[in-house]
């Protein structure tokens, strides 16, 4: 395993000082592809928010080898369709972290956004209204936006939710491709076990207040799977 980029050190996460999950100690390697699995309410979103700095840990800490830039890809349902924005407008937001208040994105930043849209095969519909795009098209625009942040870590929150099977397959193939090409660290939150088996290297499995961490080969054995699901039954 290469050097850790992110280390959770006896971390407890939750709301209003009450821990949902505690005792999280694990490391995420630079340039790795890690899937975060777990049922609804298992703490996936809380873990993600804590990692992104949107809410403080209840206890413990998160250590970064160097302060990373996160390219965050939200679920498309979180974005209000009322906003009259084109795909390009949405992707352009990825550059706002480098463009200070009172300034407009300069030409080179806009060019970068065009490049990112081309890289995600979203340039064909970038001038269309974002709210009118299909689920798969929106995800490609949002990944382009995340790439426009020039990220060290790409964080995808259930990117295949509401996306049909063919588009899901294409999307994950594409994410795997940019992971290989750009050596990005990928954190993917999902429910989809077959996708995880095919694309991820590491797994963080949140289940019944416990955290399992290991490689796909370690966790996806019949014995470990039976153990995990027995935890659920018991």
């Amino acid at each position: 395993m290469s050097e850790p980029l992110i280390t959770f050190d006896d971390l407890a996460i939750g709301y209003d000082g009450r821990a949902v999950l505690s005792g999280i100690s694990l490391a995420i390697a630079r340039s790795s592809f890690t899937a975060i699995l777990g049922a609804n309410g298992s703490g996936k979103s809380t873990l993600l928010k804590t990692l992104l700095g949107l809410q403080p840990p209840v206890a413990g800490r998160i250590h970064f080898a160097s302060p990373p830039v996160f390219g965050y890809v939200p679920q498309t349902v979180e974005l209000d369709s009322l906003f009259p924005l084109t795909g390009f407008d949405v992707a352009l937001m990825g550059t706002f972290g480098r463009v200070g208040p009172g300034r407009f994105p300069p030409h080179d930043e806009r060019q970068l956004v065009h490049d990112c849209l081309r890289a995600t095969a979203a340039d064909g519909f970038a001038q269309k209204k974002f709210s009118r795009l299909s689920g798969g098209q929106k995800q490609r625009v949002l990944i382009a936006r995340a790439l426009a942040t020039r990220p060290d870590v790409l964080v995808l929150d259930e990117p295949t939710a509401g996306v049909d099977a063919a588009a899901t397959h294409a999307l994950l193939e594409f994410i795997s491709q940019i992971h290989a090409e750009r050596k990005l660290t990928i954190l993917l939150v999902t429910h989809d076990l077959p996708l995880v088996r095919k694309h991820a290297q590491q797994i963080i499995w949140l289940h019944q207040g416990q955290i399992l961490h290991g490689t796909v080969a370690e966790l996806f054995t019949p014995e470990r799977m039976a153990e995990i699901f027995e935890m659920g039954v018991g």
């Binding site: 949107l54 996160f70 965050y72 939200p74 974005l79 924005l85 706002f96 208040p101 936006r145």
Partner: peptide, 22 residues
């Protein structure tokens, strides 16, 4: 006019704004 970009960003996607350290 000056801060339209920031005002629109926090209105549309607060999470992105926070990850961009706004």
């Amino acid at each position: 006019g000056l801060f339209h970009k920031e005002l629109m960003l926090v209105s549309f996607d607060r999470t992105l704004a926070a990850t961009l350290r706004k």
